[in-house]
Design a protein around this nucleic acid. Sequence first.
DNA 1: AGTTTTGTAATGCGATTGTATTGCTAAACC
DNA 2: GGTTTAGCAATACAATCGCATTACAAAACT
Lengths: 198, 198
Amino acid sequence: MPRIVDREERRRSSADAVFRVIGREGMDAVSLRDVAAEADLSMGSIQHYFSTKDEMLLFALNHMRARVITRFEAKLARMKNPSKRQYLRTMLNMLLPTDDESRQEATVNISFFASSVNNEQFRELLRQGYAGLLVAIELQLQAAADAGELREGMDSKTEAAQIFYTAQGLIGPVLLGVTTPRRAVALLDAHLDRIFRD
Amino acid sequence: MPRIVDREERRRSSADAVFRVIGREGMDAVSLRDVAAEADLSMGSIQHYFSTKDEMLLFALNHMRARVITRFEAKLARMKNPSKRQYLRTMLNMLLPTDDESRQEATVNISFFASSVNNEQFRELLRQGYAGLLVAIELQLQAAADAGELREGMDSKTEAAQIFYTAQGLIGPVLLGVTTPRRAVALLDAHLDRIFRD
DNA sequence: AGTTTTGTAATGCGATTGTATTGCTAAACC
DNA sequence: GGTTTAGCAATACAATCGCATTACAAAACT
């Protein structure tokens, strides 16, 4: 049986198992035994692919970013000739917990954030994630500004920050059910309306 | 030695110890032994005041809300005749991790949020917290609108939601250092500028 | 063909956890 | 004044944890 497996693929699918456990029972419940069971592996196998639990979680956090990017690009590919506004809207809406997959990702992200209190590596990865998203939004908005698509008096950096943080702030309340995905999307659309020309 | 203590006060100071442990080492590190040591109590005492660990954490989460409200009212009391805008600004800025105390509170809140994945009582309390804040902001903005302090075409509910979620979204990035408290405050001020007349 | 490496599995172990139990002191009560 | 109760402390205990160790099978390599 050995050697017929792709090592990285095994690590990725184990990370997916980690996400399912976190999404179902929270980060506290993530034990090597639980992850092994969820991934249909023995605990020895998990140990074979990850030197420590910390390394497993760190890999999982890295894998999460790749997963989100993949999901974003898949959504973009489904649109033909997306406008800059559509591009932005897609990116922002993707952050919101609208279906099972995005709910799981949001839950996992918050769990890692909480765990980052005593893990500088987690903090650094999360920092990069936030910064990368913000820059991507800034770039897109700046391009829209250059193309004359924005209303008068709009500072693209300020607007990028405001709409990004609004989306970020919506994640928790939507997860809890304080507001609905529909209302969250409408709020972001109202913001986009204010930024873009008709 | 017995009976000369205020039971509720003991529970509150134990909750403060819980917050210090969470702020320093994260929620995972919260054990009854750690909390007891942090509160300068024996483990037996902690058990005397809380039936279970869950009850202790639930009490702590309740205590957190009381603490935040107390802090807000203290700040407000330090201002003479605050305008509606100043009132709003104070409330929003208080959510941000600007000093040690607010950093600790933000960290604790996020930790409880992550733990709420498998704790409906936590979720319900967090829901109430979010909803209460949002309503308070809506009321204040509506009052400002009635007083003619807002610009034309401002929907107070929409603006309340947008500025509240923006503040919420800023908490994480400020905690991580993606942006600074100063820039976060400036962003909220820019938002207030847009809502209120000069 | 024999050796090495890799994947898988089972088990042991020390540490830590939440909770239960017990004992003791001193205030409170009838 | 004897009894009850609240506060405090120490300890026992079962469960669970991450990690190390061991064993074994099969592919890969020389």
